[in-house]
Amino acid sequence: MNDIRVRLSQNAALLTAIAIFILSYVFYNMNHPRGFSVAVLIQNSNEVFTLAMVAMAQTVPVLMGGLDLSVGAIMTLVNTIASHLLNGSPLQIALGMVISLAAGAACGFVNGCIVVYGRIQPIIATLATGAIFLGLALFLRPSPGGNVDDDLSWAATNDLYEIAATYGYAQNGEAAWFQPISWIPVPLVLLVLVAVLVWLPFARSVTGRTVYAVGSGEGAAYMSGLPIDRAKIAAFTLGGFFAGIGGLYLTLQTSSGNADIPQAGAYTLNSIAAVVIGGTSLLGGVGTAIGSIFGALILRTISFNFRIFEIDPLMQPLFEGVVLLAAVSLGAFRVLRVKNTLELFR
């Protein structure tokens, strides 16, 4: 019993984020003119997936006490790479996807090496590499465009039924056992798969625990003999990999590649907001990538709500800004609880 209470209090921020998301999403569906429908769910999950991935990408360096200002740029670079590669025979497409994801991880690896061996502060190192990645993206796609396999693009951005129907699995999606799950949107499945198959094993590994330890106190982690360099490089590489998944999905969603610099910046900034709303401390050491997924969901659900309430489009940026500012200001309640002023200076 006591154990549960401790676990609850340790994950209070994550649970709050989940609760806010559920409330706002239920609110959205109750007020939606046509009520809850699978079509709306599919559309929503498509709009959420890329930001959720970029937010997860941002989480790993933040947990380490750093910040990655290049996540949006990596996403954009992978988007432009994938827009050249995702066509041809199934084997070529599969190879293209592998190359795209590897490129994302490689960008993260470069970030990690510059931070670890160059000993440059993460925020400024990734500011610079972000410019380089955007330059490469512009080189690959001077103007928007691309050639993306239509079947794959269609299947990946719909429900599971469309995957089965497109590629002829489960009797073209008509098999009886398949019916209970055939309505689930593909991006949601992918989101869960990435969280369960990539994030959870990483967070439980020695390298993952070291990332948390470095964020809590790098000196103590060093004195404990933890593999700090390896953890830092792994944190940035995993971040690059997540951003790469986001870029790859963006390619499938838009069927094109676009080296859009303002879009890259917007994704980077939103990823920081999502990380904070998801309960991860910018000081490092506390939080999870799962929280950041919910942070991204909350940010997007707020925009969904604007859409159905037909708020003047000119007022939308103001509302979004106020909500963002209010959300990050929630952390200020810490000030009221502090008994010793010196505890504030961390």
């Binding site: 920081i272 907001a273 910018l282 940026p317 800004g321 963002l324 500012l325 200001s329 000030v335 504030l344």
Partner: peptide
Amino acid sequence: LRIPSMIFTLGVNAVMRGL
């Protein structure tokens, strides 16, 4: 309020853009 400047100024930027 002791909110990290990185995120607070980001929020203020969004509000100014909205205004």
